[in-house]
Design a protein around this nucleic acid. Structure first.
Ligand code: MN
Ligand code: MN
Ligand code: MN
Ligand code: MN
Lengths: 218, 218
DNA sequence: TTAAAAATTTAGGCAGCCCTAAAAATTTAA
DNA sequence: TTAAATTTTTAGGGCTGCCTAAATTTTTAA
Protein backbone atom coordinates (compact mmCIF):
# COMPACT_ATOMS: atom_id res chain seq x y z
CA UNK A 1 0.00 0.00 0.00
CA UNK A 2 2.47 2.63 1.12
CA UNK A 3 6.15 2.00 0.49
CA UNK A 4 8.94 2.59 3.00
CA UNK A 5 9.81 5.72 1.11
CA UNK A 6 6.29 7.06 1.14
CA UNK A 7 6.03 6.35 4.85
CA UNK A 8 9.21 8.26 5.50
CA UNK A 9 7.87 11.23 3.59
CA UNK A 10 4.60 11.20 5.55
CA UNK A 11 6.45 11.06 8.85
CA UNK A 12 8.77 13.87 7.83
CA UNK A 13 5.86 16.06 6.73
CA UNK A 14 4.12 15.39 10.04
CA UNK A 15 7.15 16.52 12.03
CA UNK A 16 7.79 19.56 9.85
CA UNK A 17 4.16 20.70 10.00
CA UNK A 18 4.56 21.34 13.72
CA UNK A 19 7.10 24.09 13.07
CA UNK A 20 5.99 25.54 9.79
CA UNK A 21 3.27 28.02 9.04
CA UNK A 22 1.38 26.96 5.96
CA UNK A 23 2.55 24.05 3.82
CA UNK A 24 5.83 22.27 4.38
CA UNK A 25 8.35 23.48 1.84
CA UNK A 26 10.05 21.26 -0.67
CA UNK A 27 13.47 22.27 0.55
CA UNK A 28 12.65 21.61 4.18
CA UNK A 29 11.50 18.12 3.27
CA UNK A 30 14.54 17.53 1.11
CA UNK A 31 16.83 18.48 3.95
CA UNK A 32 15.02 16.36 6.52
CA UNK A 33 15.00 13.33 4.26
CA UNK A 34 18.55 13.89 3.07
CA UNK A 35 17.49 13.88 -0.52
CA UNK A 36 17.13 16.40 -3.34
CA UNK A 37 14.36 18.92 -3.90
CA UNK A 38 13.62 17.38 -7.27
CA UNK A 39 13.00 14.00 -5.67
CA UNK A 40 10.68 15.62 -3.18
CA UNK A 41 8.71 17.35 -5.92
CA UNK A 42 8.19 14.03 -7.60
CA UNK A 43 7.18 12.11 -4.51
CA UNK A 44 4.89 14.81 -3.26
CA UNK A 45 2.94 14.58 -6.49
CA UNK A 46 2.59 10.86 -5.98
CA UNK A 47 1.37 11.28 -2.41
CA UNK A 48 -1.03 13.89 -3.62
CA UNK A 49 -2.48 11.55 -6.21
CA UNK A 50 -2.99 9.01 -3.41
CA UNK A 51 -4.73 11.73 -1.40
CA UNK A 52 -2.31 11.45 1.48
CA UNK A 53 -1.27 15.10 1.16
CA UNK A 54 -2.65 18.34 -0.17
CA UNK A 55 -0.26 19.96 -2.56
CA UNK A 56 -0.24 23.05 -4.72
CA UNK A 57 2.78 23.73 -6.89
CA UNK A 58 5.26 26.09 -5.29
CA UNK A 59 3.07 26.26 -2.17
CA UNK A 60 4.33 23.27 -0.19
CA UNK A 61 2.46 20.24 1.15
CA UNK A 62 0.32 19.39 4.14
CA UNK A 63 -1.08 16.08 5.31
CA UNK A 64 -4.65 15.08 4.57
CA UNK A 65 -6.55 13.37 7.39
CA UNK A 66 -5.73 10.06 5.79
CA UNK A 67 -2.07 11.03 5.52
CA UNK A 68 -1.92 12.24 9.10
CA UNK A 69 -3.45 9.03 10.33
CA UNK A 70 -0.82 7.04 8.47
CA UNK A 71 1.98 9.25 9.81
CA UNK A 72 0.79 8.91 13.39
CA UNK A 73 0.64 5.14 13.07
CA UNK A 74 4.26 5.08 11.89
CA UNK A 75 5.32 7.31 14.76
CA UNK A 76 3.41 5.07 17.15
CA UNK A 77 5.29 2.06 15.87
CA UNK A 78 8.63 3.84 15.93
CA UNK A 79 8.24 4.85 19.55
CA UNK A 80 6.82 1.54 20.75
CA UNK A 81 9.80 -0.24 19.23
CA UNK A 82 12.21 2.23 20.83
CA UNK A 83 10.58 1.54 24.17
CA UNK A 84 10.82 -2.19 23.56
CA UNK A 85 14.50 -2.00 22.67
CA UNK A 86 15.36 -0.04 25.80
CA UNK A 87 13.11 -1.83 28.27
CA UNK A 88 13.45 -5.40 27.05
CA UNK A 89 16.61 -5.65 25.00
CA UNK A 90 19.13 -3.56 26.93
CA UNK A 91 19.54 -0.91 24.28
CA UNK A 92 20.60 2.54 25.36
CA UNK A 93 18.51 5.53 24.30
CA UNK A 94 21.41 6.49 22.04
CA UNK A 95 21.16 3.26 20.06
CA UNK A 96 17.49 2.75 19.38
CA UNK A 97 16.66 5.26 16.70
CA UNK A 98 18.24 3.61 13.67
CA UNK A 99 16.74 0.22 14.43
CA UNK A 100 13.35 1.78 15.07
CA UNK A 101 13.60 3.49 11.68
CA UNK A 102 13.54 0.01 10.21
CA UNK A 103 11.02 -1.58 12.57
CA UNK A 104 8.47 1.21 12.11
CA UNK A 105 7.78 -0.09 8.60
CA UNK A 106 6.76 -3.61 9.60
CA UNK A 107 3.16 -4.12 8.55
CA UNK A 108 0.98 -6.00 11.03
CA UNK A 109 -1.85 -4.56 13.02
CA UNK A 110 -1.78 -7.40 15.47
CA UNK A 111 1.94 -6.92 16.01
CA UNK A 112 1.52 -3.30 17.09
CA UNK A 113 -1.47 -4.05 19.25
CA UNK A 114 0.21 -6.93 21.02
CA UNK A 115 3.52 -5.15 21.36
CA UNK A 116 1.74 -2.23 23.01
CA UNK A 117 -0.01 -4.64 25.38
CA UNK A 118 3.18 -6.58 26.07
CA UNK A 119 4.94 -3.36 27.02
CA UNK A 120 2.12 -2.32 29.34
CA UNK A 121 0.78 0.48 27.13
CA UNK A 122 3.68 2.88 27.65
CA UNK A 123 2.85 6.49 26.85
CA UNK A 124 6.40 7.86 26.53
CA UNK A 125 9.32 6.66 24.47
CA UNK A 126 12.91 6.64 25.78
CA UNK A 127 13.40 10.24 24.67
CA UNK A 128 10.33 11.48 26.48
CA UNK A 129 8.22 11.74 23.34
CA UNK A 130 4.57 10.72 23.62
CA UNK A 131 3.49 7.41 22.13
CA UNK A 132 0.11 7.84 20.43
CA UNK A 133 -2.55 5.31 21.42
CA UNK A 134 -4.60 3.13 19.07
CA UNK A 135 -6.80 6.09 18.23
CA UNK A 136 -3.81 8.23 17.38
CA UNK A 137 -4.14 10.46 20.43
CA UNK A 138 -0.96 11.93 21.84
CA UNK A 139 -0.77 12.52 25.54
CA UNK A 140 1.23 15.70 25.64
CA UNK A 141 2.85 17.28 28.59
CA UNK A 142 3.43 20.95 29.36
CA UNK A 143 7.16 21.08 28.95
CA UNK A 144 9.53 23.93 28.27
CA UNK A 145 13.04 24.23 26.91
CA UNK A 146 15.60 24.59 29.66
CA UNK A 147 16.97 27.59 27.79
CA UNK A 148 13.73 29.43 28.44
CA UNK A 149 13.63 28.91 32.19
CA UNK A 150 14.64 31.65 34.61
CA UNK A 151 17.32 31.24 37.29
CA UNK A 152 15.82 30.06 40.56
CA UNK A 153 13.26 27.81 38.91
CA UNK A 154 13.55 24.08 38.94
CA UNK A 155 12.03 21.25 36.99
CA UNK A 156 12.07 17.64 36.03
CA UNK A 157 13.98 16.60 32.96
CA UNK A 158 11.27 15.19 30.67
CA UNK A 159 12.46 15.18 27.09
CA UNK A 160 14.97 16.06 24.40
CA UNK A 161 14.40 18.11 21.31
CA UNK A 162 17.40 16.75 19.49
CA UNK A 163 17.60 13.00 19.83
CA UNK A 164 20.75 12.52 17.82
CA UNK A 165 23.25 10.04 19.14
CA UNK A 166 25.78 12.83 19.70
CA UNK A 167 23.49 14.89 21.90
CA UNK A 168 22.27 11.87 23.86
CA UNK A 169 25.83 10.75 24.44
CA UNK A 170 26.67 14.21 25.73
CA UNK A 171 23.78 13.91 28.18
CA UNK A 172 24.89 10.43 29.28
CA UNK A 173 28.43 11.66 29.81
CA UNK A 174 27.13 14.42 32.05
CA UNK A 175 24.68 12.15 33.83
CA UNK A 176 21.70 14.10 32.60
CA UNK A 177 18.78 11.70 32.26
CA UNK A 178 15.02 11.87 32.03
CA UNK A 179 13.39 12.03 35.43
CA UNK A 180 16.22 13.89 37.09
CA UNK A 181 15.73 17.25 38.81
CA UNK A 182 17.37 20.33 37.41
CA UNK A 183 17.57 23.74 39.03
CA UNK A 184 18.85 26.82 37.25
CA UNK A 185 21.35 28.55 39.44
CA UNK A 186 22.40 31.29 37.09
CA UNK A 187 22.55 32.37 33.47
CA UNK A 188 25.68 33.96 32.03
CA UNK A 189 24.38 36.84 29.94
CA UNK A 190 27.37 36.92 27.62
CA UNK A 191 26.83 33.48 26.04
CA UNK A 192 23.52 32.45 27.59
CA UNK A 193 25.20 29.45 29.19
CA UNK A 194 23.71 28.08 32.39
CA UNK A 195 24.97 26.95 35.73
CA UNK A 196 22.58 24.28 36.92
CA UNK A 197 22.19 21.97 39.87
CA UNK A 198 21.55 18.41 38.71
CA UNK A 199 20.52 16.25 41.68
CA UNK A 200 22.95 18.04 44.02
CA UNK A 201 25.79 18.31 41.50
CA UNK A 202 26.59 21.65 39.91
CA UNK A 203 27.09 21.64 36.17
CA UNK A 204 27.82 24.22 33.52
CA UNK A 205 25.99 23.80 30.21
CA UNK A 206 26.02 25.84 27.01
CA UNK A 207 23.04 27.56 25.47
CA UNK A 208 22.82 25.00 22.67
CA UNK A 209 22.50 22.19 25.16
CA UNK A 210 19.84 24.07 27.12
CA UNK A 211 18.06 24.64 23.86
CA UNK A 212 17.56 20.95 23.31
CA UNK A 213 16.48 19.77 26.72
CA UNK A 214 12.87 19.88 27.85
CA UNK A 215 11.95 20.20 31.50
CA UNK A 216 8.68 20.32 33.36
CA UNK A 217 8.61 23.11 35.93
CA UNK A 218 7.83 21.94 39.45
CA UNK B 1 24.83 -4.36 1.60
CA UNK B 2 22.29 -7.03 0.69
CA UNK B 3 18.78 -5.93 -0.29
CA UNK B 4 15.57 -7.58 0.88
CA UNK B 5 15.32 -9.20 -2.49
CA UNK B 6 18.84 -10.56 -2.42
CA UNK B 7 18.26 -11.91 1.07
CA UNK B 8 15.14 -13.71 -0.07
CA UNK B 9 17.05 -15.29 -2.90
CA UNK B 10 19.81 -16.49 -0.58
CA UNK B 11 17.30 -17.99 1.83
CA UNK B 12 15.42 -19.72 -0.98
CA UNK B 13 18.64 -21.17 -2.40
CA UNK B 14 19.58 -22.43 1.05
CA UNK B 15 16.28 -24.25 1.46
CA UNK B 16 16.31 -25.67 -2.07
CA UNK B 17 19.89 -26.92 -1.76
CA UNK B 18 18.74 -29.38 0.89
CA UNK B 19 16.57 -31.24 -1.60
CA UNK B 20 18.46 -30.82 -4.85
CA UNK B 21 21.43 -32.69 -6.17
CA UNK B 22 23.85 -30.30 -7.77
CA UNK B 23 22.98 -26.64 -8.28
CA UNK B 24 19.56 -25.22 -7.58
CA UNK B 25 17.72 -24.76 -10.87
CA UNK B 26 16.47 -21.45 -12.13
CA UNK B 27 12.93 -22.75 -12.39
CA UNK B 28 12.92 -24.16 -8.87
CA UNK B 29 14.02 -20.78 -7.56
CA UNK B 30 11.46 -18.96 -9.66
CA UNK B 31 8.68 -21.14 -8.31
CA UNK B 32 9.78 -20.79 -4.69
CA UNK B 33 10.07 -17.03 -4.97
CA UNK B 34 6.90 -16.69 -7.02
CA UNK B 35 8.72 -14.85 -9.73
CA UNK B 36 9.82 -15.53 -13.30
CA UNK B 37 12.82 -17.54 -14.48
CA UNK B 38 14.17 -14.49 -16.30
CA UNK B 39 14.21 -12.49 -13.07
CA UNK B 40 16.04 -15.32 -11.38
CA UNK B 41 18.66 -15.46 -14.11
CA UNK B 42 19.31 -11.79 -13.67
CA UNK B 43 19.52 -11.84 -9.89
CA UNK B 44 21.65 -14.93 -9.80
CA UNK B 45 24.24 -13.15 -11.92
CA UNK B 46 24.23 -10.29 -9.48
CA UNK B 47 24.67 -12.58 -6.49
CA UNK B 48 27.45 -14.32 -8.35
CA UNK B 49 29.24 -11.05 -8.95
CA UNK B 50 28.98 -10.39 -5.21
CA UNK B 51 30.43 -13.85 -4.59
CA UNK B 52 27.44 -14.97 -2.60
CA UNK B 53 26.71 -17.86 -4.96
CA UNK B 54 28.55 -20.00 -7.46
CA UNK B 55 26.82 -19.98 -10.81
CA UNK B 56 27.48 -21.51 -14.21
CA UNK B 57 25.05 -20.75 -16.99
CA UNK B 58 22.44 -23.47 -17.42
CA UNK B 59 23.92 -25.37 -14.45
CA UNK B 60 22.06 -23.78 -11.55
CA UNK B 61 23.41 -21.99 -8.46
CA UNK B 62 24.80 -22.97 -5.12
CA UNK B 63 25.71 -20.84 -2.12
CA UNK B 64 29.29 -19.82 -1.43
CA UNK B 65 30.43 -19.95 2.18
CA UNK B 66 29.76 -16.25 2.41
CA UNK B 67 26.30 -16.73 0.90
CA UNK B 68 25.48 -19.63 3.20
CA UNK B 69 26.52 -17.60 6.23
CA UNK B 70 24.21 -14.80 5.16
CA UNK B 71 21.34 -17.22 4.52
CA UNK B 72 21.70 -18.86 7.92
CA UNK B 73 21.70 -15.49 9.63
CA UNK B 74 18.41 -14.61 7.93
CA UNK B 75 16.90 -17.95 8.93
CA UNK B 76 18.14 -17.39 12.46
CA UNK B 77 16.38 -14.04 12.57
CA UNK B 78 13.21 -15.41 11.00
CA UNK B 79 12.89 -18.18 13.57
CA UNK B 80 13.83 -16.05 16.56
CA UNK B 81 11.15 -13.56 15.60
CA UNK B 82 8.60 -16.36 15.16
CA UNK B 83 9.46 -17.60 18.62
CA UNK B 84 9.13 -14.09 20.00
CA UNK B 85 5.73 -13.57 18.40
CA UNK B 86 4.35 -16.82 19.81
CA UNK B 87 5.94 -16.69 23.26
CA UNK B 88 5.63 -13.00 24.01
CA UNK B 89 2.96 -11.52 21.77
CA UNK B 90 0.23 -14.16 21.78
CA UNK B 91 0.54 -15.03 18.12
CA UNK B 92 -0.49 -18.49 17.04
CA UNK B 93 1.93 -20.61 15.04
CA UNK B 94 -0.38 -20.09 12.07
CA UNK B 95 0.10 -16.32 12.13
CA UNK B 96 3.80 -15.76 12.58
CA UNK B 97 5.31 -16.53 9.23
CA UNK B 98 4.30 -13.46 7.25
CA UNK B 99 5.40 -11.06 9.95
CA UNK B 100 8.68 -12.94 10.38
CA UNK B 101 9.23 -12.62 6.63
CA UNK B 102 9.38 -8.89 7.22
CA UNK B 103 11.26 -8.90 10.52
CA UNK B 104 14.02 -11.19 9.24
CA UNK B 105 15.35 -8.31 7.14
CA UNK B 106 15.91 -5.89 10.00
CA UNK B 107 19.61 -5.10 10.15
CA UNK B 108 21.12 -4.91 13.63
CA UNK B 109 23.56 -7.35 15.12
CA UNK B 110 22.80 -6.19 18.61
CA UNK B 111 19.09 -6.67 18.03
CA UNK B 112 19.48 -10.35 17.14
CA UNK B 113 21.92 -10.99 19.96
CA UNK B 114 19.73 -9.35 22.56
CA UNK B 115 16.52 -10.84 21.23
CA UNK B 116 18.09 -14.30 21.47
CA UNK B 117 19.18 -13.58 25.03
CA UNK B 118 15.80 -12.09 25.96
CA UNK B 119 14.07 -15.23 24.70
CA UNK B 120 16.41 -17.48 26.68
CA UNK B 121 18.34 -18.79 23.67
CA UNK B 122 15.55 -20.94 22.25
CA UNK B 123 16.74 -23.67 19.89
CA UNK B 124 13.43 -24.47 18.18
CA UNK B 125 10.93 -22.20 16.48
CA UNK B 126 7.15 -22.65 16.84
CA UNK B 127 7.12 -25.12 13.95
CA UNK B 128 9.82 -27.30 15.44
CA UNK B 129 12.54 -26.00 13.13
CA UNK B 130 15.98 -25.49 14.65
CA UNK B 131 17.15 -21.95 15.35
CA UNK B 132 20.83 -21.64 14.43
CA UNK B 133 23.08 -20.15 17.12
CA UNK B 134 25.43 -17.19 16.73
CA UNK B 135 27.96 -19.43 14.97
CA UNK B 136 25.32 -20.62 12.52
CA UNK B 137 25.13 -24.14 13.97
CA UNK B 138 21.83 -25.92 13.71
CA UNK B 139 20.91 -28.33 16.44
CA UNK B 140 19.11 -30.96 14.44
CA UNK B 141 17.01 -33.78 15.75
CA UNK B 142 16.54 -37.26 14.37
CA UNK B 143 12.98 -36.96 13.22
CA UNK B 144 10.95 -38.92 10.71
CA UNK B 145 7.82 -38.28 8.70
CA UNK B 146 4.77 -39.82 10.29
CA UNK B 147 3.99 -41.36 6.91
CA UNK B 148 7.13 -43.47 7.17
CA UNK B 149 6.43 -44.95 10.58
CA UNK B 150 5.10 -48.48 10.98
CA UNK B 151 1.93 -49.35 12.89
CA UNK B 152 2.66 -50.13 16.51
CA UNK B 153 5.37 -47.51 16.83
CA UNK B 154 4.86 -44.29 18.71
CA UNK B 155 6.56 -40.98 18.83
CA UNK B 156 6.53 -37.39 19.87
CA UNK B 157 5.21 -34.80 17.47
CA UNK B 158 8.26 -32.59 16.83
CA UNK B 159 7.82 -30.67 13.62
CA UNK B 160 5.97 -29.87 10.42
CA UNK B 161 7.28 -30.10 6.90
CA UNK B 162 4.64 -27.81 5.46
CA UNK B 163 4.18 -24.77 7.63
CA UNK B 164 1.48 -23.14 5.57
CA UNK B 165 -1.37 -21.54 7.44
CA UNK B 166 -3.81 -24.08 5.95
CA UNK B 167 -1.90 -27.10 7.19
CA UNK B 168 -1.28 -25.61 10.63
CA UNK B 169 -4.95 -24.75 10.97
CA UNK B 170 -5.84 -28.31 10.10
CA UNK B 171 -3.54 -29.47 12.88
CA UNK B 172 -5.04 -26.99 15.35
CA UNK B 173 -8.53 -28.12 14.45
CA UNK B 174 -7.57 -31.70 15.16
CA UNK B 175 -5.66 -30.82 18.31
CA UNK B 176 -2.40 -32.03 16.88
CA UNK B 177 0.37 -29.99 18.43
CA UNK B 178 4.13 -30.21 18.91
CA UNK B 179 5.03 -32.20 22.00
CA UNK B 180 2.04 -34.48 21.86
CA UNK B 181 2.36 -38.25 21.67
CA UNK B 182 1.21 -40.07 18.57
CA UNK B 183 0.91 -43.82 18.14
CA UNK B 184 0.18 -45.46 14.82
CA UNK B 185 -2.63 -47.94 15.25
CA UNK B 186 -2.99 -49.01 11.66
CA UNK B 187 -2.35 -48.08 8.08
CA UNK B 188 -5.02 -48.51 5.42
CA UNK B 189 -3.17 -49.99 2.48
CA UNK B 190 -5.61 -48.68 -0.12
CA UNK B 191 -4.96 -44.96 0.43
CA UNK B 192 -2.11 -45.06 2.93
CA UNK B 193 -4.23 -43.22 5.46
CA UNK B 194 -3.51 -43.76 9.13
CA UNK B 195 -5.49 -44.45 12.24
CA UNK B 196 -3.54 -42.90 15.10
CA UNK B 197 -3.88 -42.46 18.82
CA UNK B 198 -3.25 -38.86 19.80
CA UNK B 199 -2.99 -38.59 23.58
CA UNK B 200 -5.73 -41.20 24.14
CA UNK B 201 -7.98 -39.98 21.34
CA UNK B 202 -8.25 -41.98 18.15
CA UNK B 203 -7.96 -40.03 14.93
CA UNK B 204 -7.97 -40.80 11.24
CA UNK B 205 -5.56 -38.87 9.05
CA UNK B 206 -4.81 -38.96 5.34
CA UNK B 207 -1.48 -39.80 3.76
CA UNK B 208 -0.86 -36.21 2.77
CA UNK B 209 -1.19 -35.09 6.37
CA UNK B 210 1.11 -37.86 7.58
CA UNK B 211 3.55 -36.78 4.93
CA UNK B 212 3.93 -33.37 6.47
CA UNK B 213 4.24 -34.16 10.13
CA UNK B 214 7.55 -35.05 11.75
CA UNK B 215 7.72 -37.25 14.81
CA UNK B 216 10.55 -38.51 16.96
CA UNK B 217 10.26 -42.19 17.70
CA UNK B 218 10.24 -43.04 21.37
C1' DT C 1 9.00 48.37 -9.87
C1' DT C 2 12.37 45.54 -11.31
C1' DA C 3 16.38 42.79 -11.31
C1' DA C 4 18.85 39.45 -8.80
C1' DA C 5 18.57 35.59 -5.66
C1' DA C 6 16.33 31.68 -3.95
C1' DA C 7 13.09 28.06 -4.23
C1' DT C 8 10.77 24.84 -6.91
C1' DT C 9 9.64 22.18 -10.82
C1' DT C 10 10.69 19.79 -15.12
C1' DA C 11 13.68 17.13 -18.20
C1' DG C 12 16.51 13.50 -18.90
C1' DG C 13 19.08 9.65 -16.84
C1' DC C 14 20.46 5.74 -13.86
C1' DA C 15 20.01 1.53 -10.77
C1' DG C 16 17.24 -2.15 -8.82
C1' DC C 17 13.96 -5.50 -9.63
C1' DC C 18 10.28 -7.07 -12.04
C1' DC C 19 7.80 -8.74 -16.63
C1' DT C 20 6.83 -10.84 -21.58
C1' DA C 21 8.59 -12.58 -25.74
C1' DA C 22 12.23 -14.38 -28.39
C1' DA C 23 16.53 -16.88 -28.76
C1' DA C 24 19.67 -20.40 -27.26
C1' DA C 25 21.07 -24.49 -24.73
C1' DT C 26 19.95 -28.73 -22.68
C1' DT C 27 17.23 -32.72 -21.90
C1' DT C 28 13.94 -36.17 -23.42
C1' DA C 29 11.89 -39.29 -26.33
C1' DA C 30 11.52 -41.08 -30.80
C1' DT D 1 21.12 -39.76 -33.36
C1' DT D 2 17.92 -36.45 -34.12
C1' DA D 3 13.80 -33.87 -33.47
C1' DA D 4 10.71 -32.19 -30.14
C1' DA D 5 10.00 -30.56 -25.58
C1' DT D 6 11.77 -28.24 -21.76
C1' DT D 7 14.73 -25.17 -19.44
C1' DT D 8 17.32 -21.20 -19.28
C1' DT D 9 19.09 -16.96 -20.93
C1' DT D 10 18.82 -12.61 -23.45
C1' DA D 11 16.41 -8.60 -25.32
C1' DG D 12 13.61 -5.00 -24.55
C1' DG D 13 10.51 -2.58 -21.37
C1' DG D 14 8.05 -0.83 -17.10
C1' DC D 15 7.97 1.14 -12.55
C1' DT D 16 9.93 3.29 -8.31
C1' DG D 17 12.87 6.37 -6.40
C1' DC D 18 16.96 8.62 -6.81
C1' DC D 19 20.25 12.32 -9.18
C1' DT D 20 22.08 16.58 -12.02
C1' DA D 21 21.15 20.31 -14.88
C1' DA D 22 18.05 23.42 -16.93
C1' DA D 23 13.81 25.99 -16.84
C1' DT D 24 10.34 28.35 -14.28
C1' DT D 25 8.18 30.66 -10.46
C1' DT D 26 8.39 33.16 -6.29
C1' DT D 27 10.69 36.03 -3.04
C1' DT D 28 13.89 39.53 -1.75
C1' DA D 29 16.29 43.62 -2.18
C1' DA D 30 17.74 47.19 -4.67
MN1 MN E 1 13.62 7.80 17.07
MN1 MN F 1 12.27 8.59 20.20
MN1 MN G 1 8.32 -19.11 8.87
MN1 MN H 1 9.03 -21.48 11.34
Amino acid sequence: MTSFSEENYLKAIFHLEKTSTGGVSTNALAEKLETKASSVSEMVKKLSKKELVAYRKYQGVSLSDKGREAAVEIIRKHRLWEYFLVEKLNFSWTEVHDVAEQLEHIQSEKLVLELDKFLGFPRKDPHGDPIPDTQGNFQSLEKVLLAEVEPGQQGLCVGVRDSSREFLEYLDKNKIALGKTIEIIEREEFDQSLLIRLENEELHISKSIANNLFIKII
